[in-house]
Write a protein that binds this DNA or RNA. Structure first.
Lengths: 236, 236
DNA sequence: ACGCACTGGATCGTACATTGTTTGTGAGAG
DNA sequence: CTCTCACAAACAATGTACGATCCAGTGCGT
């Protein structure tokens, strides 16, 4: 059973993704999933009574969930006119990736100087599972890849940065799940991960940071290309 | 009257700091101010009925305000045990500054390549007011300084990054308001702002980014030292 | 001294009242 | 006949009040 939880992506310790009331929490999660996964269209109105009916609760938990989502930026509010879905569009994804490019190298640099042999063993184990899976199960790949990077950022002293990274990651994971990996991207991921492990072992913090910068940027470019292609196909 | 609004710090366009219901909005703002300004102690319990009584409303707006604050990271929740004030301590401030050091240079680099002569005129005007004020009115300085940097980041295409910067800025503004500026820091601020304007004029994006990095880091170090000193004084 | 039931209180969920916005209809002007 | 404006009714968001549920701390009994 340890095997099962090994590749389930979990947030860095101390970062509580939910924490609301029992009912409110699941509501929050479900609405957020609906937004991220695209089941709720961009800019769609979120009518409180509708959501309450659909999820079988009263309006109050819905309102609280919406406020929480507002604080996290998934929903926009206009006074006396209710909530709307914030579009998870190319701009949104690009913004997130760009912030990742700025933050992740710093997290990585710290990790390289703090990595234990257990960390490296764990990274190699996960990398082994990633290569074993070899993108056959894309969902599993997504989980493993997230776990890989979580090992690196998990214990960083800057909890804010780690939390920010995790929140962004959750969005990107959901978005990229809609697409397949190109062969070029698959090769790049495997190659860069291996190179990264090597640099960590060698204690090359700056080079590792620089590599992560390229890694994140490449990942972002890949997803954005896919989104663009799908949009073009839809429009054509 | 144009003169009055000139030095009032305003968020970058399109970034709505409130947007809740009329009553709920002020509630949200008041509670947040109480947290940031330190009137609500770190880890203090936020009892819904108390807050409702104190602010003269019913419990529901309070609950929504708290959820919003949770989403923004100012309060923490434990299921069935309510909300607590997230401590605005040295770790918190350090985390925010470190993220600023990573993000602001990128925003600056973009601005240098996009700056118009109007932008530069506005920066020089604000810098003139800053030097004229010369830290006599620290509150005014804080507003002017925020306005100065807002000019630079306001129109950045990455709305996420700009919003992140603004949110952090609001916290730091409130925190630094508790302290005075050392003479060394005053000199550094004036000098770095002047140098920054010169670099922007010259179109030296990389150098400007590097300068901002030092500027933010210096600002962070200054505030953290003040916090540390006060804590030591309090403990002694 | 340790454990268990009880009590006090706060959170969480439901139902309802109020207020503001939107939309649809109709009359009048062009 | 069409367009515009005003008014009114429906609708949704916001605020209030209340009951149910869940925790924490206390005091009793062993």
């Amino acid at each position: 059973m340890a095997e099962m939880s090994d590749f389930k992506a979990m947030p860095p310790v101390g970062i509580d993704p939910i924490g609301a009331s029992s009912e409110g929490a699941s509501l929050y999660e479900r609405i957020r999933e609906d937004i991220i996964e695209g089941r709720l269209a961009a800019n769609e109105r979120l009518v409180v009574t509708d959501l309450a009916r659909r999820h079988g609760t009263s309006t109050n938990p819905v309102r609280e969930a919406l406020q929480l989502l507002r604080g996290e930026g998934f929903v926009t509010f206009v006074a006396n006119r209710g909530a709307r879905v914030r579009p998870i569009d190319q701009d949104f994804v690009r913004d997130i990736y760009e912030i990742g490019v700025l933050i992740e190298p710093a997290l990585t640099r710290w990790f390289v100087n703090m990595a234990t042999s257990e960390d490296i063993a764990e990274l190699e184990r996960l990398q082994g599972l990633i290569e074993e899976n070899n993108f056959a199960d894309t969902f599993r790949h997504s989980e493993l890849d997230t776990a890989f990077h979580t090992v690196m950022y998990q214990r960083h002293y800057n909890r804010h940065a780690a939390e920010l990274w995790w929140k962004h990651r959750e969005v990107l994971r959901a978005v990229s799940r809609r697409f397949n990996f190109t062969l070029a991207r698959r090769a790049a991921i495997i190659r860069e991960h291996r190179e990264l492990i090597a640099l960590i072992k060698a204690g090359e913090a700056d080079k590792a940071a620089e590599l992560i910068s390229r890694h994140v940027e490449g990942s972002g470019r890949h997803v954005l290309e896919q989104m663009r292609a799908r949009n073009a196909a839809r429009a054509g």
